[in-house]
C-alpha cells in the first residue's frame, strides 16, 4: 500500500506547529479520511470538526496545501503526495486547537441582520403564490452550507480583520437571499451600507472561487446588492419623491 505524509497544525490558540503523520492511502480517499485514520492510529486527541462527510454540512473547512477547502470533498488524488500535505485551520477566525477555530462571530453576525418578514398570504389557506422563476435566484443563495470558506479568503476579514465593520461574503449572500425572497417585505439596504460594510467589498471574487456550492457570490449576490444600495441611497429623484410623499422608496 502507498503511504503519504500529512503535516497537520497541532496546538492550542496562540501556538502550535506542523506535525508530520504518515499513514496509508487507499483509492478514493479524501483528506478527512486521512485525518480520521491519523486520529485512530496515533493522535487520538487531534481536534477537527466534521459531520456529514458528504459536502453538505460545511463543518470540515480547513486550508489544505494553503487552499481553503472542505476536507471531506478534497480527494488525495487531487494533491501532490510526493511531499507532505499541509492541513491547517482557517485563518480568518481565532484559532482554538489543532484544526478547530472559533467561528462564533458568524453566528452573532447573522443575528444582527433584519429577519425575514413575509407579506400577507396570497391565498385564503395561508399560502403564497410564487413562480419558479421568482424563486430561482434566492434558491441559489440558499444552497449555502455555511462552511465559512468565503469568509476565510475574504481579505477584508483575513488580512484587515474588519470583523466589526464588515459582515463578509457569507452574510451578503444571506442578505441577498432575504432581499430576493419574493414575499419578504423588509428593506435591508440601509443596514447593508451603514452597519454591514458592503462598501468594503471590492469584488475580487476570491469568495466565489472557493465556494464548494459554486454559488456565484460576487456576480449574483454582492454586485446586485451594491447596485440596489447605490440606487437607494444616492438616487436624487427617489429622494425627492421620498421627501414629497413621505415614503421610503423600495429597492
Amino acid at each position: 500500500m502507498a503511504k503519504a505524509t500529512f503535516s497537520i497544525l497541532r496546538g492550542e490558540a496562540g501556538g502550535g506547529q506542523l506535525v508530520d503523520y504518515t499513514t496509508e492511502v487507499t483509492e478514493g480517499m479524501v483528506v478527512l479520511d486521512a485525518v480520521h485514520q491519523i486520529q485512530a492510529e496515533s493522535a487520538g486527541d487531534l481536534a477537527c470538526r466534521w459531520n456529514c462527510k458528504a459536502g453538505k454540512c460545511g463543518s470540515c473547512s480547513a486550508e489544505i496545501d494553503g487552499q481553503p477547502r472542505l476536507m471531506c470533498m478534497t480527494r488525495l488524488n487531487q494533491l501532490d503526495l510526493t511531499k507532505p500535505v499541509t492541513i491547517e485551520p482557517m485563518k480568518a477566525f481565532p484559532h482554538f486547537k489543532d484544526l478547530v477555530t472559533d467561528v462564533s462571530w458568524n453566528y452573532r453576525v447573522k443575528k444582527g441582520i433584519t429577519k425575514f418578514t413575509p407579506r400577507k398570504p396570497d391565498a385564503a389557506d395561508g399560502t403564497w403564490r410564487m413562480h419558479q422563476e421568482d424563486v430561482d435566484r434566492a434558491q441559489e443563495f440558499r444552497k449555502c452550507i455555511e462552511c465559512f470558506l468565503c469568509q476565510d479568503v475574504c481579505h477584508v476579514l483575513r488580512d484587515h480583520h474588519l470583523h466589526d465593520e464588515f459582515i463578509g461574503p457569507r452574510f451578503l449572500v444571506y442578505t441577498a437571499n432575504l432581499e430576493m425572497n419574493p414575499i419578504d417585505t423588509e428593506n435591508r439596504l440601509d443596514e447593508l451600507r451603514k452597519l454591514h460594510g458592503i462598501g468594503y467589498c471590492n469584488i475580487t471574487k476570491c469568495c466565489t472561487k472557493v465556494c464548494p456550492e459554486e454559488i456565484k457570490i460576487t456576480d449574483n449576490a454582492i454586485i446586485p446588492l451594491k447596485e440596489r444600495v447605490v440606487d437607494h441611497a444616492f438616487d436624487p429623484l427617489a429622494k425627492l419623491i421620498g421627501l414629497v410623499t413621505g415614503k421610503i422608496p423600495g429597492p
Binding site: D125, G126, T127, R129, N181, D184
Partner: peptide, 18 residues
C-alpha cells in the same frame, strides 16, 4: 406551509404553489 412563512423556498408548481 408554516416553513414558507418562515422563509423556506420550495420548488414550485406551474401555478406557483409548493
Amino acid at each position: 406551509k408554516e416553513l414558507e412563512a418562515w422563509g423556506a423556498l420550495f420548488d414550485r408548481t406551474k401555478d406557483g404553489r409548493i
